[in-house]
Simulated assay, not measured.
Amino acid sequence: MRIRKEAELEWAIQKYDVMAKGCQYYSKIRNMFHEARGEEDYDKNFQCIGRDREFSLFEESLS
């Protein structure tokens, strides 16, 4: 399950940025990881975190 390791690594890198966005958002992502059962779920989690990171970087570039 290579995607699981990649997703968990991305989560480890991003979790404090995610927490800064708010407790509710952090809880959503945390629950997604707790509920993940297979590669498809971890891929979805990985994509979700990546999209959020790209959007944050885009927002920063506008300011």
Rank of each mutant, 00 (worst) to 15 (best):
M1R: 05
R2N: 11
I3H: 02
I3Y: 02
R4F: 03
R4H: 04
K5P: 01
K5M: 04
K5H: 05
E6M: 11
E6I: 12
E6F: 05
E8V: 03
L9M: 11
L9C: 02
L9R: 14
L9D: 10
L9P: 00
L9T: 11
E10T: 07
E10H: 09
W11K: 01
W11H: 00
I13G: 01
K15D: 02
Y16D: 11
Y16G: 00
D17S: 14
D17I: 08
D17E: 10
D17L: 11
D17C: 04
V18S: 02
V18C: 04
V18R: 00
M19D: 01
M19I: 05
M19Q: 04
M19C: 04
M19F: 09
M19L: 13
A20L: 09
K21W: 03
K21A: 09
K21F: 04
G22F: 05
G22V: 02
C23H: 13
C23N: 12
Q24D: 12
Y26N: 01
S27Q: 07
S27L: 08
K28E: 13
K28C: 04
I29M: 06
R30P: 00
M32Q: 06
M32W: 01
F33R: 04
F33L: 14
F33S: 06
F33E: 04
H34L: 07
E35R: 09
E35L: 07
R37S: 08
E39R: 11
E39F: 00
E39Q: 14
E40A: 14
E40R: 13
D41H: 06
Y42H: 02
Y42F: 15
Y42R: 03
Y42E: 03
D43M: 12
K44L: 13
K44A: 11
K44R: 15
N45L: 08
Q47L: 09
Q47T: 11
Q47N: 10
Q47Y: 04
C48S: 08
I49G: 01
I49Y: 03
I49R: 01
G50P: 00
G50S: 13
R51Q: 08
D52A: 06
D52K: 09
R53F: 05
R53N: 12
E54W: 06
S56N: 02
S56Q: 10
L57P: 00
L57I: 15
L57D: 14
F58H: 13
E59Q: 09
E60H: 13
S61R: 13
S61L: 15
S61P: 07
L62V: 13
S63G: 14
S63K: 15
